[in-house]
Amino acid sequence: MAQKVWNIYLDRSDFFIQLSLEHLRISGTAILFGAMIGLILGVLISEYRKTTPVILGMTNLIYTIPSISLLGILIPFTGIGNTTAIIALTVYALLPMVRNTYAGITSIEPSVIEAARGMGSTPLEILVKIKLPLATTVILAGLRNMIVMTIALAGIASFIGAGGLGVAIYRGITTNNMAMTMAGSLLIALLALLSDFLVGGIEKSVKRKWRLK
């Protein structure tokens, strides 16, 4: 089996490189949007506690929708293809980002924020100079989770006609070509692991630099 998979990679290397790049493009776009929107929402709910239950509840709810049905729900609005896949992935990416940003900010020692406020920092200065740096490791942990999840989840995007390594998996299943399915799956796992490793490295160096726990 391993031999077969290896041969597929060698025979069809262009195909797999192209699928991998497309996979990274789709998941990367979703990761970028998810990270940005999630960070903003996370900051919002920790600054304005009234919004916390609503936004956290909504992102939680979305998270529980099975991915296949979310894709199905989106098709009438955004059609089939990459756009729909990116929207669905972005929406899933929100929860880990929102939750960790919120947890990171709210777990900061209150005396630290009290000192910053008492010394005359504006709310924005407190956010930028104190809260976000001190929440960075928790936010990065959320980001890391989210990246791995998004890359893996992007594999099913091909079921609604999007590109990426899911195409190989889908083709493998429909043509009863086990080696093809394996080849696609392994590459997805590899991409996920690599990015996990990469963000983990960033997380560590930030922790060391800022003496964070």
């Binding site: 630290v112 009290e114 000192a115 406020r117 005359g120 964070l212």
Partner: peptide
């Protein structure tokens, strides 16, 4: 302006509240 006022008033608390980063 409270922000300006606070910058001109030193503030020390028991928990110190140093910025760990």
């Amino acid at each position: 302006d409270l922000i300006r006022l606070r910058r001109n008033i030193g503030y020390v608390i028991q928990e110190v509240g140093l910025f760990p980063h």
